[in-house]
Nucleic acid binder design. Structure first.
Length: 304
RNA sequence: GGCGCCAUAGCCAAGCGGUAAGGCAGAAGUCUGCAAAACUUUUACGCCCCAGUUCAAAUCUGGGUGGCGCCU
């Protein structure tokens, strides 16, 4: 069988509570699929499950890495799969909960990340080309070595263009094979659930939650992280709620502006998440504006 | 009461006689090693209302309405 239950959904929709209820009901343990809750010390801004919530059901892949560490999908896949195996070994059901689409993909599809990690120097060199000669110039290089990738990646998406060139040049000289894009993994039998709400209600919840996070002490948390030596150059600090508050402390904007930005960026993020989740064909959607936990539990029971 | 200024999309705003820039918010989307990232697309049969001048008006003229400022 090896059934795993995935609980996806945009930020602030209510995933944490639903995942816990599902885990409690079906003898499960939760594997977080969230690129920010992975980091230690970033508790408030990433809206981690509280200690009380984590006491109800065991959570994996939370507080896993240091905000200074480099991380990637490939690493996530490794850790998550190990956690899933561990849960299976105890005869329990893994519940994958979170909103990071790419990470989720790494568990649902056969993804071969190859071996190329890339080198800083080479990467910098490529970025320099883009900066000095323009995005188009860099894109032309990619066109030269892989017309196919070049067609798929927009010239302005420098980050991607760089990654594509680097993957080919530094890698096994082997272009990543995209033919397996939609090959679903045979490792598990997955049940996909996406929670959503009416747009207005979702945005309202997001706005309100940001205010709550501020009241919970987000400012102090960010101040503490800055004291620990983390800066906006660290990827972890590019998370929503962190980069804006750092900007406030650096005098880039007023507190009100920073809070507004956190809200706006969270709203946009939620929209991108929904766009991503819409791709999954076999996803079961629940509009929490119209249904509740009982509906979800019942549906799982009937389709298990 | 008098004088002056202003009125363009949800918001900010350019245009000053030739057929509505741009930004923000919003919407849609892309995605195989930084993904809470990066990137793409999109938003006014109409410029407060009425009349006039003109081949042509958001742009000029007159009148209204609304707002702002100053003066008595």
């Amino acid at each position: 069988m090896r059934k795993i239950i995935v609980v996806a959904g945009p930020t602030a929709v209510g995933k944490t509570e639903y995942a816990i209820r599902i885990a409690e009901e079906f003898n499960g343990e939760i594997v977080s699929c969230d690129s920010m809750q992975l980091y230690k010390y970033m508790d408030i801004g990433s809206a981690k499950p509280t200690p009380e919530e984590q006491a109800r059901v065991k959570h994996y892949l939370i507080d896993e890495i240091d905000p200074k560490d480099d991380f990637s999908v490939a690493l996530y896949m490794e850790k998550a799969k190990a956690a899933i195996e561990h849960i299976f070994s105890m005869g329990k059901t893994p519940i994958i909960a979170g909103g990071t689409g790419l990470y989720l993909n790494s568990l649902l599809y056969e993804m071969d990340f190859g071996k190329s990690k890339g080198s800083e120097e080479y990467r910098d060199k490529l970025y320099k080309i883009a900066k000095e000669k323009g995005n188009e110039a860099l894109h032309k290089i990619l066109q030269g070595i892989s017309p196919d990738s070049a067609k798929r990646i927009h010239p302005n998406n420098v980050k991607r263009v760089v990654r594509a060139i680097e993957a080919i040049e530094i890698g096994e000289n082997q272009l990543q094979d995209f033919s397996n894009v939609n090959v679903k993994t045979k490792d598990y039998d997955t049940m996909l659930i996406c929670l959503n709400r009416n747009r207005e209600e979702l945005y309202d919840r997001i706005n309100r939650r940001v205010d709550i996070l501020i009241n919970m002490g987000l400012l102090d948390e960010v101040k503490g992280l800055m004291k620990m030596g983390f800066t906006d150059a660290d990827i972890s600090m590019k998370g929503i709620g962190y980069k804006e508050i750092i900007g406030y402390f650096d005098g880039k904007y007023s507190l009100d502006e920073a809070i507004e930005l956190v809200k706006r960026n969270s709203r946009r993020y939620a929209k991108r998440q929904l766009t991503w989740f819409k791709k999954y064909q076999d996803m079961k959607w629940f509009n929490l504006s119209e249904s509740n936990i009982e509906d979800v539990l019942l549906w799982i029971k009937e389709n298990k």
